[in-house]
Structures are given as structure tokens and as C-alpha cells.
Design a protein around this nucleic acid. Structure first.
Lengths: 220, 220
DNA sequence: ACCTGAACACCGTTCAAGT
DNA sequence: ACCTGAACACCGTTCAAGT
């Protein structure tokens, strides 16, 4: 038996504050997906008009960035086991996993660079592990961006519905590439499409970590 | 003195075929930016209703993919000078440059994987250079994706208007990171934000090339 | 001073009904 | 058989006018 509720059926309407808006936005995303987290839909959820939200949120991009930062609170920042490189891959995999569940957010993250608390904690953790690995500061600073970009872009690519059709089209194109016109594609053939997503991603992280370690900044 | 035109003021209305539609879309993008290349706006340009376009184009994503492939025809695929690595960086830089001029297209390319002729030619060129560098096929196949993803994501990040504000916010957040809460961020400080875009990108290409060469696929 | 109804200026996509 | 007018179901953002 549930306790009696005040008049409304839905959970108590949050106060119209930035915090309340973002909490509601996160709930809405969990319930209906990011594509439903629009100013209008969110305003309906809060029993107000869309104009009211602009008092607390600059625009849709900022709203989505705030939602993302909220989710980044769940990233595993301090794994226990393994050497620095293994732990770094774990942190990055955990970050990617959060984004995979909402590829639309990954897209936002690419376009509107995040700068929230949880994002900063992620940056701190990655830099700590790169430092532990003895990677020079200049390379670590740039490598950080490249690692997070790789994770974010991979998640953004995973926009599901269409991506299966695109994959089929690409597979067909690769199959039709003849030795005469595209010898290198023909030579590699199925290898181009082989490998599971996770295997590729973990390999990619190692590639970027190794490259960051061995590529000095002044090099060309 | 210009030759007399038939009735209309604007350039002769292209035939309503897939080719005519895409040509018009490219022109519209050059004139007004990708954000104006919508089904409705394009239909207006072609003196018809939006529904008519769906006979030739599945949806907006496919339209944008076709526009991108058109532009990829201008990528420099066979630079003459330098060793394989220098030439590879040149090809990738040329690809990035095309995307930089239309960051919205880069975003499309991340979500809807391209598979047109010009994209395939780019893949062929990159694979050729990786083979020339003696990189094993399995690594080349995966490294190809990572290289193009790096270029595409970097261009997508460049969505101009907002990105300056985001950068300022991030710079402020980095400045405010104290030694107590974020020692690694504090230690690197301005190094995190240093470096021009092109310098970082070229470094990133070298990182991925070096990493691809030295990271075997079974490695962990 | 603070908040918001209503309007402006658009979208993508579908499908019944025309030629 | 082919094409499309009109409709459906939405958007983001602004600003004049209210309390």
C-alpha cells in the first residue's frame, strides 16, 4: 500500500530552479530518451511554458551539457587492479559505456565541450594515470584530449537505427571494390569490417596511449 | 552583357532527379550553409513540395551524406613530396580541411557513415599509404578508421559560434582547479589549453600513425 | 523585478487523393 | 504509375505584456 499522495499523480513537481530543471531532464531522458529532452517537452513536464526555462538555461545545447555532466558522475575513476595503462583503459571504457547508453549525448559532447564538475574529475583522473605512466606533461595534455575524443566519437557513431543500414551499404561497397579500381581495399577485404566494437575500441585506446607516449610534441 | 535567360531569374531549375537534387543541395550549402539544407528549403529551391524529394532521397541524413561525398571529390589523394608518413598526414589534413569548412557535415559523417565513391577513394588512398609504410593489414584496417575518425571528430568539434564560449568556460574551470582538489590539472595548468588547432591535429595524426604501427591487434 | 502567453519562423515525414 | 497538397506532430527562441 502506497502512502497517500498530494493531488497530482506524477512525482511532486520539482521547484523551478536550475537544479530542478536538470534533475527533471535527466529523468525524462531515462524514461523517453534524449530526443525527447526538448525545451518544450521539458516545460510540459514542469507544468510551465518553454519561455520560463530560458531564465535558468541558456539554450538546448547547455541543457544537454548539464545532463551529460550529471551522468558522468557514474564513471569509474579509480579502478584498483592492474598497471597504470590497464587502469586508464578501464576508466576510458567506463566513460564510453555511459555515452553508449545515450549516443545523442556523445554528439553534444563533441560539439559543446563539457566543463562541469564531473567532467573535470574525469580529466583529473586521466591525467593522474598518464603522469603515473611517466608521460611528459606536454604530451599528456594533448593526449588527454585525443583519448576522450576517441571515446566520445566512438559513442557518437553508435547512433543505432541508421548505423546498421550504413554498415550494410559500406560492406556492399567494400565487396564491390575491384582489384582494378581499389587494389588496397580489395586486398584487405573482409578484414576492414572485422572485429567487434569493444575489441576495436580497446585496441584504439592502446594505440593512442602508445602513440602519446612515443610521439614528442615537436616531432613532425 | 549577359545572354538572355529564359523566364526565370535564378539558374535554370534542375530536373527533379537524384543528381539534380544533390547538385542543388551542394549549391544551397555553399550559398547559405548546411543548416539551410533542409528538405523544405531544398524543395522550395526546386519549386516543388517536400514530399516530392522523398521519391529520390530516403531522408535528411542520406541527403547530407550525399552532399558530403560530393565535397570529398576535392580531397588531395596523391601528394607527391615526402615519405609515406608525411604524405599520409597531407591526405588527412586535406580531408580535415574540407570538413572544417562545413562542421555540420563532419557531424553527419560521424553519425551516418559515408559509403560513396569519393569516400571509397579516400579509404583506398589511406590504405595504400599505410601499406607503403609496411603496416600489417590487420592493424591498417583498424588504424584507417581511427585516423578518419580523428579527423572527422576534430572537424565536428569546430562548430564555431558556441565553441568559443565553451572554451572560455573550460579555461575558467581549469584556472579554478586548485592543487587540493585537482592536483594534476593544477600541475599542467595552461599547458592543457596550449597549442594551435593545426599543431594539435598534426601531432594527433602522428600519434595515431605511430600507435597503429606499434600496437599489435592481439595486444592488451 | 520577475515570469510567461503567444507568436514567429521554422522543421521531418507521411499518405490520401489527384493526374 | 507517378507525383504531391495538405496535414500531422512537432521544434527553438524571443519579447511584449502581464503580475
Amino acid at each position: 500500500m502506497t502512502a497517500p499522495r498530494s493531488r497530482r499523480e506524477r512525482p511532486a513537481k520539482p521547484a523551478l530552479t536550475r537544479e530542478g530543471i536538470i534533475t527533471t531532464a535527466v529523468g525524462l531522458m531515462r524514461a523517453e530518451g534524449l530526443e525527447r529532452v526538448t525545451m518544450r517537452r521539458l516545460a510540459t513536464e514542469l507544468d510551465t511554458g518553454p519561455a520560463s526555462l530560458y531564465v535558468y538555461v541558456r539554450n538546448t545545447a547547455e541543457l544537454h551539457a548539464a545532463v551529460l555532466d550529471e551522468l558522468l558522475g557514474t564513471v569509474e575513476l579509480r579502478p584498483r587492479k592492474g598497471n597504470w595503462q590497464d587502469r586508464l583503459v578501464r576508466v576510458l571504457t567506463s566513460y564510453t559505456k555511459v555515452l553508449f547508453e545515450h549516443p545523442g549525448l556523445a554528439q553534444s559532447a563533441l560539439v559543446a565541450r563539457p566543463s562541469g564538475t564531473n567532467y573535470l574529475n574525469l580529466v583529473e583522473a586521466v591525467l593522474g594515470l598518464l603522469a603515473e605512466g611517466g608521460i611528459p606533461g606536454g604530451q599528456a595534455a594533448w593526449g588527454l584530449d585525443l583519448l576522450l575524443q576517441t571515446a566520445t566519437a566512438t559513442a557518437a557513431e553508435h547512433q543505432t537505427e541508421t548505423s546498421q543500414e550504413d554498415w550494410d551499404l559500406l560492406a556492399a561497397a567494400v565487396r564491390d571494390a575491384t582489384k582494378a579500381t581499389h587494389p588496397n581495399i580489395a586486398a584487405l577485404g573482409p578484414q576492414l569490417l572485422a572485429g567487434s566494437g569493444p575489441d576495436r575500441l580497446i585496441w584504439a585506446f592502446h594505440v593512442v596511449i602508445n602513440g602519446t607516449r612515443t610521439t614528442p610534441r615537436e616531432s613532425s
